[in-house]
């Protein structure tokens, strides 16, 4: 005779299976080392760049200052030479040198040519011309 379990004797429930482990997303593998290296490199480049730029700016600043000093010096020299030239070109001095040292005399009156006269008389190079430009033209022509 087969033994039948009596319903009066409840059977202890079977232990529930352990819950499956929670699923978690696994991202790409982190390369922390790379990050650190990159950051260090970028930082180093940044620092180096800043220092370089700063040094470059300082160098340019010194160069600009040197050039400014040079420009000021040249401007002062230019002014001094301008004064010297103006003194040498002074009409009083020029006249003094021309008359006393070189024995020159004032020029005779300038001639005025008549450029619009179609038939100038022979030997008459001193006809009137109302336009002052004629005088300039005469000067340019070497008269």
């Amino acid at each position: 005779m087969a033994a039948v379990a009596s319903p009066q004797h409840p059977v202890a429930p079977a232990p529930s299976p352990p819950p499956p482990p929670a699923l978690r997303l696994v991202g790409p593998r982190r390369h922390v080392g790379r990050y650190v290296v990159t950051l260090v490199v970028v930082g180093a480049i940044g620092v180096f760049g800043c220092v370089t730029l700063n040094a470059f700016a300082a160098k340019q600043s010194f160069a600009a200052r040197t050039l400014q000093v040079e420009v000021d010096e040249l401007a002062m020299r230019y002014d001094e030479l301008t004064v010297d030239v103006a003194a040498l070109e002074s009409p009083r001095r020029v006249r003094r040198v021309a008359v006393r040292r070189l024995g020159m005399v004032p020029a005779l009156a300038p001639a005025f040519l008549v450029l619009d006269d179609p038939r100038p008389e022979a030997g008459d190079a001193t006809r009137a011309n109302a336009a002052p430009a004629a005088a300039t033209a005469a000067g340019a022509a070497g008269d």
Partner: peptide, 23 residues
């Protein structure tokens, strides 16, 4: 000022006073 003379012929034959004075 290169002002043209009223009578260029008289102007051309004249000796400037300054020249005469200097000479």
């Amino acid at each position: 000022r290169r002002v043209p003379p009223s009578d260029p012929h008289a102007r051309a034959t004249a000796q400037p006073a300054a020249a005469a004075d200097t000479a």
